[in-house]
Design a binder for these strands. Structure first.
Lengths: 176, 176
DNA sequence: GTTCACACGACCGATGCGATAGGGTTCATG
DNA sequence: CATGAACCCTATCGCATCGGTCGTGTGAAC
């Protein structure tokens, strides 16, 4: 009997988090971890995060349209967050760039669409199961902020945040 | 300021559950709900579940290679499960047909691959977050069996299963 | 040995993703 | 008020995958 050869996954097999969104998240985390609230110029982000320069331009444009980032033109220009990173969840970024978070159209909150596969959507087991999966995923994505992510990467504890007067690396002026 | 036009998702935007896998699950649920343990012929499955006939052939072939289904050739032939549906989880079917369940390659259990985006995978916030999402998703997918799904669709309660001597519609000879 | 149904491989069109090209606009600085 | 660094935007390309089809091969039953 033929053994089903395991499909070797390519980069396109993980489309809830496309390359574009991964780049976006890396850029945002860089702004938080290294930007200290100042505007950061695009070439610097591109170089340090190994993101193609022109591709990053498109991404920052989208982040700006989403109201997550604002840009400053001219020399000494660059990008900065519009809000404190504590108020930006991973879910917001992903939903904005990717669209639906659900894994089947009939289980999406914001992009619902009948799939037409089942006879009765009200009892369809596939839909019911993937609504569960969607809810669990959204729970995670919405409960973690970009600030949380930055703290993970800098190996900081919450205690560092409470002691912000003693040199928290994430302490910055996020007032825009 | 330009508003980021929400991308209208197409069918290809939900690739963890492709059309192929949805068809596969529908076919399996049909075997359980209507097959009563007997072999069911492909054209009947295709017609009732609105699945293109030739496409379904490929799918059943894969399910056979995965050891979930066995085929009987010739007249009176067809497909039947190899095991009791209680022992087949949605996760098994999906993982077999789709490959990785994780949404980023560096967060996959069975198909791990460095993504190369981050400097240090050990602290990468994106990876850490999507490992959480993956674990939640796998929890759900592995904890629900095809029999559970069939009971949902038939609006049966667990009590019906306990009273199997009083005509449980899912009572059947699953010994192969 | 004919019939019926599964098995298998090659193939095709559409679409989305990653990425690039190349120009245009803005604006702080001197 | 010129300059240059930086952002803004549209168009396009190559590639891979996905959904789906065609034609033929193989094997069991009557």
């Amino acid at each position: 009997m033929r053994a089903l050869a395991p499909r070797i996954p390519t980069d396109q097999d993980y489309p809830m988090l496309t390359q574009k969104t991964r780049y976006a998240l890396r850029a945002l985390l860089y702004l938080i971890e290294e930007g200290h609230g100042d505007a950061v110029q695009l070439p610097r982000i591109a170089e340090t995060q190994k993101i193609p320069r022109k591709f990053l331009e498109l991404i920052m444009l989208d982040l700006k349209a989403l109201g997550i980032v604002k840009s400053v033109r001219g020399p000494k220009g660059g990008y900065r967050l519009t809000r404190h990173p504590r108020g930006i969840s991973f879910g917001e970024v992903i939903r904005g760039l990717e669209g639906p978070i659900a894994l089947v159209p009939c289980a999406s909150v914001n992009f619902y669409k009948r799939c037409g596969d089942c006879h009765d959507e009200a009892t369809c087991a596939i839909r019911r199961l993937f609504v569960l999966v969607r809810d669990r995923s959204i729970d995670v994505l919405n409960s973690v902020s970009l600030e949380d992510g930055a703290r993970w990467e800098l190996r900081l504890t919450d205690a560092d945040a409470d002691n912000s007067h003693s040199g928290d690396p994430l302490a910055a002026d996020w007032q825009i």
